[in-house]
Amino acid sequence: MGSRAPATGLGRDLAVVAAIATAILLLPLGTQSGAALHAVILTLLATVLGQGWNILGGFGGQFSFGNALFFGVGAYAAAVLQMRLGINAWIALPLAAAAGAAVGALVGALAFRYGLKGSYFALVTLAFAEVFRILANMLPFTGGGVGLMLPLDTRAAAMQFASRVGYLYLIGAFAVAGFLLHVWLRHSRFGAWLVAIRDNEAAAAALGVDAFRVKLAAIVLCGALTATSGLFYVQYLHYIDPNIAFGPAFSVEALLGPIVGGMGTVFGPLVGAIVLHALSESTRNLVADVPGVSLALYGAVLIVMVRYMPGGIMGLLRRR
């Protein structure tokens, strides 16, 4: 055995991130089709949502069933800051991330202080998302059930773009930031502690790991990153209401991607988002004439995938 430090794969991970970033940059050279770019943008949005969930659920083993909470907080922070307070979207970006982080800290402090785990933690996140959905319906500055319509202002200075390429690069930048966060988790002390807590919290505590603080930091990161996906949603689609923001759809989308792609892996959220979007498109095309059948087929394929690929697609690749 040599004295050289063992290879950790850091260089390889960074190379893959660079390749993904390059592919996103060069994509408009290949296609200018609005529909194609839209599909890629939605896939990258799902990737960022999945990345946020993966930090806490995949690396930390704390399964959130209410990540729409952070998505919605980011979306509403973006809309309210711009529309009610006249704050520029680029300044709203860090503020929305901070709002997501703060809500993450609140939920984490309550849930982890009292040692909630497993399904109890999942239920608490679900309950918080529901509470925020009701609040968004009631509070005056959120526009209530009508929602908020972000006025059109297609200048890059307002983080709005006339072409989809601008949005592609924006969500691409968020996704790359999410990948770099994942690479850091994979190759840092914090990430090692987080994974140790996931695998055996008592053993981690016996090795000096402060499980409460590490989990709290993880949910703060999860909240901040997920909030940026909410902000992007508002910038791109110009509309948010309580059911979209805090409803179950984005909570489910956030966890499905990483579970299908590979929990706790750096690229699982991307792989999962691509596969799920391709799957939902193809089932929709396959049985376009009977409404509802495509969803049933989508669900059936999902069940088969989760049953036979517990490690997700990344887990399957690694075993081969």
Partner: peptide
């Protein structure tokens, strides 16, 4: 109480991280 999914080296490194911040050093 091993971290079953992790390699032996990664398992021991969790303990080493208490005194060593750098992943490489741990």
């Amino acid at each position: 109480q091993p971290f079953a999914a992790q390699s032996v080296r990664e398992n021991i490194a969790v303990g080493a991280h208490l005194r060593l911040r750098s992943r490489r050093d741990a």
